[in-house]
Design a protein around this nucleic acid. Structure first.
Length: 747
DNA sequence: CGCATAATACTTTTT
DNA sequence: GTATTATGCG
């Protein structure tokens, strides 16, 4: 039946033209909301329909696993076997290739994927060994990543390095690469770079994959980096069937090595490229598009274009200025509450966007206190939690015993009598004998400098790991995982500890184990089950878990919001320094990228767009004044309506500036709003529990070391209270149960 | 020598 | 709110 469906049904003329061009190199310049993912899906369907290729011979690279899944679903809806399309992120697609072809580049098939945290740990290890404390591991690792994205090897960088800092970084880079090889690990950048070498140096491998993927599609092409462009060129060859879709205005990953120029260079790289433009926007109303255009047209270096829409009518975008960040959260959430409770909209219609993850907390607090359903995308991912990473490290060391980074993570988690001194000896021995830490553990007796007790502890742990590894193939995955975490003492330690958060951690571990059970059920006899699970976790994006069905308010960074759309969008924190984000001493800061980010933010909105800012915001715990974002000042007045407190001076008077319109709308909203507003001047979690004598702002206390001081803040911290006290020599954070503060009589 | 505790420092965006 | 460091105890 399905073969009678027109694969191009439902497309407009421009979309149809692009999707029907199934030969040669095609570049689709598609504006925000112009249906580019649709075009991609229909083009894939069209290729199959015209019998140019079977679905599994078509490669579609997208930005997230979620959009890959969506693309598959779209294709499957109009094409027989459509779900067999090879769709995924660059990283996941080429990881699969690398596993298959591991032999060719002298890697074991079960190499470990080092995610960002692993990479940072590795850099830190190297810095520690070199006794260098001047640099932050993260910044070094970022520099290395930038070089790898630009395909600069340590050897090449050696000649360019002029300053001693650069030379040092190069030294770390070289050692970092050595260690990855030694540990049989690949970082995220390797997943793109290694395939280039693989394909270039192995003609038979290249021939296989070129034949396998006869049609190549790339979504969000503006966010490709040099390595990705190179991969496309190699796979495409001289007569590519290649279609890339992108929008230079939405390039927001320059800091990660993405090159917008790849769009312009595409036409040079592939002769006879056909270019199509999609300029009709199906998402937003005219007023929103006007505002978006006024912002992005100031950007230098862009393809000139202007989106248009048939939705001429629509609400003017609003700008609201609030006194404090808590007021901002209160206003946004109250507005959502009013409209949902009056039946005008559902929770799922709203998205709250922000520049940095840290901003999510106040909105969360406000939503939670009103019991509104919400989901935060990003910030603290499930798989980034300490206990989950610990558990995964246990799994990883069993899959790949050469993975020293994982071993070091868990060697004292729980403590098993192997401390820093013993570890140092082990590391030294393993390096001297050119072997792994796991080997050193088992040979504890031979390692010089170890006490007999230390050696014994090492051997016991080494044998334990070996035992786990052997049982891996014998047991069901979830049972094996549970057993390993129990046998290792990890679970027991969580159970025994009386810490407040341990219960949550245990819950999370259990969730991981049931996730493993589910994975095993769904995975159809995949050969290396656990390895597949672990790598899926490493490459998972938080947006992948985004549930469009749930009726809840969505909160996420603008970066995470790319590719999504919502009826009502709040873009928050529009203050100078925060958005556009500025950081001192950031050399490769690109103001245009912030501008494009703002463009991405506002073009998420279908019907209503609200921009908010606060005159005061807490930064590093200190309340400081904020100036409006330059973006706000640029907005042509005729495109927006403004409200709220108009100056920082008004802010000091409290939040009276916008009381009147509120009173008319809802008394209830006002009262709930006022409540947050008053509690916001203190921290929301300010406590006075029953078991500990209450401590309050302004209390005078005495500390045995710091002397007398005044309490300026008290916040719940784990199952204790963190008290900030202003002493003569400055502020100190103290734990109330530990610091034994003596209350002094008030004057 | 190992480990727990207390204090300090740090906080863009992400495959 | 967390990861690292410093300190002191067993």
């Amino acid at each position: 039946m399905k073969q009678f469906i027109d694969p191009l049904a439902g497309l407009n003329d421009a979309q149809r033209e692009a999707a029907s061009c199934t030969e040669g190199a095609v570049l689709v310049l598609a504006g925000a909301g112009s249906g580019k993912t649709r075009v991609l899906a229909h083009r894939v369907a069209n290729v199959v329909h015209q019998k140019h290729a079977r679905p599994w011979q078509i490669l579609a690279v997208t930005f997230t696993n979620k959009s890959a899944r969506e693309l598959k679903e779209r294709v499957a809806a109009i094409t027989p076997d459509g779900d067999e399309v090879a769709a995924g992120t660059f990283h996941s697609i080429f990881l699969r290739m690398l596993r298959r072809e591991a032999k060719a580049i002298d890697y074991p098939r079960d190499f470990t994927v080092f995610d960002m945290d692993d990479s940072n740990r590795l850099v830190k290890m190297i810095l520690n060994e070199k006794g260098e404390k001047r640099f932050q591991p993260r910044s070094i690792r970022a520099a290395i990543s930038r070089m790898k994205n630009d395909m600069i090897t340590p050897e090449q960088h050696e000649n360019r390095a002029k300053t001693s800092d650069q030379k040092f970084i190069n030294e770390v880079y070289r050692e970092y690469e050595n260690r990855l090889l030694q540990y049989a690990g690949m970082d995220f950048d390797d997943l793109l770079i290694r395939p280039i070498g693989l394909l270039k140096n192995h003609p038979s491998v290249l021939a296989y994959w070129r034949d396998r993927w006869r049609y190549i599609h790339v979504d969000e092409y503006q966010d490709t980096n040099l390595a990705q462009f190179e991969l496309i060129k190699i796979l495409g060859g001289s007569r590519p069937n290649l279609c890339v879709v992108g929008d230079d205005d939405q390039s927001i990953y320059g800091w990660r090595g993405a090159r917008v120029e790849n769009i312009f260079r595409f036409r040079e790289a592939f002769e006879g490229t056909k270019v199509f433009r999609l300029e009709q926007n199906y998402r937003s109303t005219q007023p929103i598009l006007e505002l978006a255009h006024s912002v992005v047209s100031r950007s230098t270096m862009r393809e000139d274009k202007k989106l248009w829409t048939e939705k001429k009518e629509g609400k003017k975008p609003e700008v609201i200025r609030l006194s404090t960040e808590a007021d901002e959260a209160g206003e946004v959430v109250d507005r959502i509450g009013r409209e949902v409770l009056s039946g005008k909209r559902e929770y799922r219609d709203y998205a709250i966007l922000y520049r940095t993850n840290a901003q999510s907390r106040l909105f969360e607090d406000a939503l939670r206190s009103r019991r509104f359903p919400y989901q935060v995308i990003g910030s603290l991912r499930f798989y980034d939690r300490k206990e989950i990473r610990d558990a995964l490290a246990y799994f990883k060391i069993c899959i790949n015993p050469r993975d020293d980074v994982s071993l070091r993570r868990i060697i004292s988690e729980p403590p098993r009598g192997i401390g820093t001194t013993t570890l140092d000896h082990l590391v030294e021995w393993s390096r001297a004998n050119d072997t792994t830490l796991t080997k050193a553990l088992i040979n504890g007796e031979v390692v010089e400098g170890l006490s007999s007790r230390g050696a014994n502890n090492c051997r016991k742990f080494g044998e334990q790991i070996e035992n786990w590894r052997n049982e891996l193939k014998e047991k069901k995955l979830n049972e094996w995982a549970k057993w390993v975490l129990e046998d290792s003492g990890y679970i027991r330690r969580l159970e025994d500890g009386d810490k407040f958060e341990n219960a949550t951690r245990l819950d999370n571990i259990n969730e991981l184990i049931s996730g493993l059970a589910q994975f095993e059920e769904e995975a159809d006899e995949s050969e290396n089950g656990l390895a597949d699970f672990v790598e899926q976790v490493a490459l998972a994006t938080d947006i992948d878990k985004y549930d469009p069905e749930a009726d809840s308010v969505r909160m996420m960074t603008i970066h995470s919001a790319k590719g999504l759309e919502f009826p009502v969008v709040f873009v928050t924190g529009l203050e100078k320094g925060l958005f556009p984000f500025e950081r001192m001493g950031d050399s490769d800061y690109d103001p245009d990228e912030e501008r494009r980010l703002f463009y991405v933010a506002v073009t998420r909105a279908e019907k209503e767009l609200i921009l908010t800012m606060a005159w005061q915001r807490r930064k590093w715990g200190v309340l400081s004044g904020c100036a409006p974002s330059p973006f706000l000042k640029e907005l042509p007045r005729e495109f927006i309506s403004e409200s709220g407190t108009s100056s920082p001076y008004a802010a000091k008077q409290g939040s009276l500036g916008f009381g009147s319109s509120r009173d008319r709308n809802s008394k209830k909203a006002v009262s709930s709003f006022r409540k947050t507003n008053t509690s916001s001047s203190q921290k929301q979690e300010t406590i006075s529990p029953d078991d500990i004598p209450a401590i309050h702002y302004g209390d005078l206390v005495r500390h045995k070391v710091f002397g007398d001081g005044m309490v300026v803040n008290a916040v719940k911290y784990r199952n204790d209270i963190k008290v900030t006290v202003e002493f003569e020599d400055g502020q100190h954070d103290l734990l109330q149960s530990k610091a034994k503060l003596q209350p002094l009589k008030d004057f």
